[in-house]
Amino acid sequence: MSARHDAWDRLAQVSAPTLVLHGSDDRMSPVSNAHAIGGRIPAARVEVTEGGRHGFFDEFSDTITPRVAAFLAGAP
């Protein structure tokens, strides 16, 4: 259950390249959470999809999928 999961103190230990993606209109998880997580992970990149809701990765798959693929391939 995610309500009992707390990894906040461990985020600063993440050493892998990290891309935090979030939708600006997510009503289940505020976009401020993405910025908080991204700010806690060293050198994380936060990208917010304008108009994206909780399932933004499906809604905007035509732009999200290439962004994720480029990140995984090591593109800036």
Rank of each mutant, 00 (worst) to 15 (best):
G51A: 10
A43H: 14
G51I: 13
L21A: 00
A16K: 14
R53W: 13
T65D: 05
E47R: 14
T49R: 15
R4M: 13
G74K: 04
E50H: 15
G39Q: 00
H22M: 12
T49A: 03
D6M: 01
G38I: 02
Q13N: 01
T63G: 09
P42V: 02
P30G: 05
V46N: 09
G55Y: 03
P42C: 09
E47S: 13
I37C: 01
D25M: 06
R53N: 09
S29V: 12
R27M: 03
D25Y: 04
D6Y: 01
I37A: 06
S15D: 02
M28P: 11
T18R: 00
D62T: 14
D9T: 01
R27L: 12
G38T: 07
L72D: 04
H35D: 09
A44K: 12
T18V: 05
Q13D: 08
A3W: 04
Q13M: 12
S15Y: 05
W8P: 02
P17W: 01
E47M: 11
D26S: 13
S32R: 00
S15I: 11
R4S: 09
E50I: 09
R10Q: 05
D6T: 00
R67S: 07
G74Q: 05
V48F: 07
V46K: 06
A7R: 10
A75C: 05
F71W: 15
F56A: 05
L11D: 03
P76K: 04
P42N: 12
R53V: 10
I64C: 13
G74V: 09
R10Y: 06
M28D: 12
F60L: 15
R10C: 15
A7G: 06
G52I: 05
A70Q: 08
G39V: 00
I37R: 01
R45D: 06
A69E: 14
I64S: 11
G55A: 11
